[in-house]
């Protein structure tokens, strides 16, 4: 079962520069584990140590944000297209406060 995964510029160091890679898995979590077996370190950029999707990484299955599909439990089918985009975020907000929001968002899932 092949799923096409679109890799953003900032993570292409893990894929030998490839913009699109193929992977397999019944869920997004399985897919990331499969990708990590060939592109070591990629999963660690997307998933926290607590095992949740990072707050400031956007992952889409086809046209849907996976946050609305069960995050790492999102079901995948043959032929699906997964897109990874680092969130574009920032601002004058203090770092500690932003980190607290990020942690809160992770904990809330």
């Amino acid at each position: 079962m092949a799923i096409e995964v679109r890799i953003p510029t900032i993570l292409r160091s893990y894929t030998g520069g490839a913009k699109v890679v193929d992977g397999t898995g019944d869920t997004l979590g399985d897919l990331l584990a499969d990708l990590d077996s060939r592109h070591a370190g990629l999963r660690g950029r997307l998933v926290t140590e607590a095992g949740a999707l990072h707050r400031f990484v956007n992952v889409y299955v086809n046209d849907e944000d996976v946050r609305f599909l069960g995050a790492l439990d999102a079901k995948l089918s043959d032929g699906d297209s997964v897109t990874i985009l680092p969130a574009v975020a920032g601002g004058a907000f203090g770092f500690a406060a932003a980190a607290a929001i990020s942690q809160h968002a992770v904990a809330a899932r």
């Binding site: 510029t9 900032i10 400031f56 601002g91 004058a92 770092f95």
Partner: peptide, 25 residues
Amino acid sequence: VIYHSHTATEAYPSRTDVSFAGEPG
């Protein structure tokens, strides 16, 4: 170009801006 405004502080990247900057080009 990726732009944003700071509305009460100088136009210099905050630590938050730096930690989230995901487009190296």
